[in-house]
Amino acid sequence: MIKVISFGEALVDMLSSRVSEDQSENSDSVNERFTKFPGGAPANVAAAIGKLGGDSYFAGKVGADMFGDFLVKSLESMHVRTDYLLQTSEAKTALAFVSLDKTGERSFEFYRGPSADLIFAPHEFQPEWFDDQGIFHFCSNTLTEPGILEATQAGLEKARSAGWLVSFDMNLRNNLWPKGTDPFAPVWACVEQADLVKLSAEELAFLCRHQNETEVLKQILNAGASLVLVTDGEKPLRYLTPSHYGSIEPRNVQMVDSTAAGDAFVGGLLYRLSDLNITAASLKALGEDPEQLEDMLTFASACGAHAVTHPGAFTSLPGLQDVASLRT
């Protein structure tokens, strides 16, 4: 098994009490309460890998405050190594207030800038982190400000130089970008450096601009990606490799909270890649074996299906036994 470093934001999700309360017109008269849960897309992925039994590390920065302490303990409780998680007194831990509608779909209000996750510096990536083989995973939320963009590029450079498999989940949150900023160029630059690219259907549409999906997906593969994944809620998961195209039908479950669905899916896939010692070089060979690839994607899809049936992020992530029960 090779190690996985998930880099980026660890934050606290403040989940609204109205998730389980009356959603009628009179609900506004009820005092709304928020309960803290550990969150942040790359932190969720790290926790998903750790709970499944993977060699999971989280790299990032949180505040030296009660919320930062909470996140450190929460990650460690999910068997995530926090050696690369730094704490600072220069900024506070980021918060995200989360509301759900009747179907479990979420909306976010972020209290992030300036926050601790944004001041992780390029020099804080240590060369020894990238000894041996591994997987480096990140999202677009570390591209939103010049400083954290530079840090992300430094981490990418170290990972690629070490021959690591690079995984990029676009996970675009437009409300995290400064007003008037177009995320297209920095996001596309990261797509071009990734071996594994995961997009939602909406994110693929964002990348298309004036081109059609087929052209854009071909460009992603031509740029060097060995595996491209396109998710679309309850619709089939699409996968593309340089030589194969296919789809996976998701498990039909009753959704309670979609917060960690994509992160559980990505964590499940990275766990399987790590468990089989899949490197950047061998990911290309995996793309030539649709049967094995589809088995791994079915496993990852079951992780996502389990997550949507439970509230919160870390609290919704499955263990191996949970995944096995969904696949029977």
Rank of each mutant, 00 (worst) to 15 (best):
I220C: 12
E90T: 01
E234R: 02
L86A: 03
D101E: 12
S77M: 09
R81G: 06
P242I: 12
E192C: 15
G246C: 04
V191R: 11
S258C: 11
T315I: 00
L293Y: 07
S20V: 14
A48K: 10
F70Y: 15
V30D: 13
S247F: 03
W129G: 05
F136N: 04
S274Y: 00
L85F: 00
L52W: 06
A162C: 04
F97K: 01
L270C: 10
I5V: 11
G104Q: 02
G60S: 03
A302L: 07
T241C: 08
L283V: 11
N277G: 05
G68N: 03
P183F: 07
N26M: 13
F108W: 07
S27W: 10
D195A: 06
R18E: 15
E9R: 06
G134E: 03
G163H: 06
V12K: 01
Q153W: 10
L273F: 01
H137G: 04
A43M: 10
G63S: 09
C208Y: 09
N277W: 05
A121R: 11
G53D: 11
I220N: 10
E215T: 14
I5F: 04
D65C: 09
I135P: 00
D55R: 10
S74V: 05
T88G: 04
T298L: 09
A225D: 01
A47G: 09
Q211P: 04
H306G: 01
S325F: 06
T309D: 07
F110E: 02
F184C: 10
G134F: 00
D289P: 10
V166T: 11
V216D: 08
Y57P: 01
E128G: 04
G155T: 06
W129M: 15
S247L: 08
G180I: 15
K51A: 12
A281Y: 10
A162Y: 00
I278G: 06
F136C: 05
K3V: 00
E234V: 01
N175D: 14
G60H: 06
L95T: 00
F120R: 03
P311F: 11
Q211H: 14
D195Q: 09
Q126N: 08
L85N: 02
S89H: 11
T259V: 11
P183S: 11
I220P: 12
S247K: 10
E145Y: 15
T328G: 13
